[in-house]
Every structure is written in structure tokens, then in C-alpha cells.
Simulated assay, not measured.
Amino acid sequence: MLASAVDDVAPGALVFHRKAYATHSLVDDFRVIDVADGVPLSAYLGVLGGTGLTAWVGLTRVARLQPGESILITAAGGAVGSTAGHLAKALGAARVAGSTGSDDKAERLLAAGAFDEVVNYRTTSLHDRYADAGFDVALEGVGGEQARCGHRRRQGPGRADRLGGRGGAVQRPRQPARRPRQPLRRGAQAGSRSRATWSRTTSTHARATRSSWSR
């Protein structure tokens, strides 16, 4: 902070804002960062920023992971997924499994020590790998087939938390083809005007009703 018009924030303070990635910015919405000893500033843009917050809220507030439970984390090689793996282990998860898109990512995740097992979903079917397995929590960040696997492999009153659709992998159901418009037949214009008149009358009535409610 080079200059401040806020009484309790003095120049020299370190702040976080979303205004711009630039050398100088004029901001009115920011958060003061209390830097801990030995923690690099880059951590406040990652594990101590939005990345870590997403994983933490997903595990503790939404999925409510408990000590001794098992969890399946998709998109485990991403920022949120890998952070969630470490947090899950720190929260006492008995089994932390993950899925990612390459053997190299899987090896690095296992070497980091948070995940007990990691599957490359491009070469191994999650349905086949976990056909007889059950998870208490599914932390889902991909969508499509992996999301369906996470939902099907929940055991008992299992919980699922959807974090997003990484890489556009969300598979949406196909929309039915639109029927081509039929040309307006002679004699249909009067009916169209009647429907339009009814629509305007209904809208006017709705506005009047909302107005009376607000009063």
C-alpha cells in the first residue's frame, strides 16, 4: 500500500485485491494480509488464497469430512484437488483416493504423500477400479463420467461436493433438435393478435399485483 485514505490501513501494508494485475492500482475493495513468518507471498495467491479456501470450504462446510472417513477427489492434479488431498489427510481422512489425467501427475501426487492411491482415468476406468469400493465423500471437479462414478461409489449416507467442471469436461445432455418453424397460414393472424392481447393483459395485471404488494 503506497498511500491510503482508510484510517486503519497505513501505507506499507500488504493487501490483496482483484482490481488488476499491474504495478499500480487504485482500489477501494481489498483485504489486508497478515504475513506469517516463513510463508512466501505467493502462498496468499494459492493455498492461502482462493485455491485453499475453495478446498477447505468444500471439505469442511459442504462435504463435512470426518476423521476416519474415505474420500475420492477428481481433478486431483489441479490446484484445488491437490490442496484438498493434503487438507483431507490433515483432517484425519483414513483413505484419500484421487483421479488425474496422466501417470506423471499420479506419481507426483503419490510422492507428495497426501494421496493413498491415484488413478489415471485416461487408461483406467474408475468404475472398474472402484467397483467394490465405497467412499464416504466425493469431491468432484470434473463432471461427466467421473462425476457419475463418484456418485455411484458413495457408501451409506455419503456426501458429494461439486466444485466445477475442469477443462470443459462436463458432459451436458443432448438437446432435442428444434422443429423448423411453420409458415403462418391465412387466418392465423387474428388468433396471434388475441394471444398477444391476452399476454399484455396478463402482464398488466401482474405488474398491478406486484405494485399493490410493494405498497
Rank of each mutant, 00 (worst) to 15 (best):
M1W: 06
M1I: 15
M1S: 14
L2E: 14
L2K: 07
D8Q: 09
V9T: 14
A10G: 08
A10I: 09
A10E: 12
A13Q: 09
A13H: 06
R18T: 15
K19Q: 13
H24N: 08
L26V: 15
L26M: 08
L26A: 13
V27D: 03
V27Y: 04
D28L: 00
D29L: 08
V32Q: 12
V32I: 14
D37C: 01
G38A: 05
G38L: 07
L41K: 05
S42P: 05
Y44E: 01
Y44G: 09
G49I: 14
L53G: 08
W56G: 06
G58I: 10
T60L: 05
R61N: 12
V62W: 04
L65E: 06
Q66W: 04
P67G: 03
G68E: 00
E69P: 09
S70P: 12
T74E: 01
G77W: 02
G78W: 02
V80Y: 06
T83S: 09
A84E: 06
G85N: 02
G85E: 01
H86E: 08
H86A: 13
H86V: 14
L87E: 10
A88L: 09
A88S: 13
K89S: 12
A90S: 12
L91C: 06
G92K: 03
G92R: 05
G92M: 03
A93T: 12
R95S: 10
R95F: 14
V96Q: 01
A97H: 08
A97Y: 06
S99K: 00
R108Y: 03
R108T: 09
L110K: 13
A114Q: 03
F115R: 00
V118F: 04
N120R: 04
R122S: 10
T123A: 09
S125Q: 09
H127D: 15
D128A: 15
R129G: 09
A131N: 05
F135G: 10
D136G: 10
D136I: 11
V137Y: 00
L139T: 12
L139N: 07
G143P: 02
G144A: 11
E145W: 02
E145H: 10
E145I: 03
Q146D: 07
A147W: 06
C149F: 02
G150P: 12
G150W: 03
R153G: 12
R153K: 11
R159E: 13
R159W: 05
A160R: 06
A160S: 15
A160M: 15
D161M: 14
G165F: 01
A169T: 07
V170K: 00
Q171R: 11
Q175M: 11
R178W: 05
R181C: 01
Q182G: 08
R186E: 12
G187N: 05
A188S: 12
A188V: 13
Q189F: 11
A190K: 11
R193I: 14
R193W: 11
S194D: 11
R195F: 10
A196W: 13
A196M: 07
T197N: 07
T197I: 07
T201S: 10
T202P: 00
T202N: 05
H205P: 00
A206K: 02
T209E: 06
T209F: 05
S211N: 08
S211V: 10
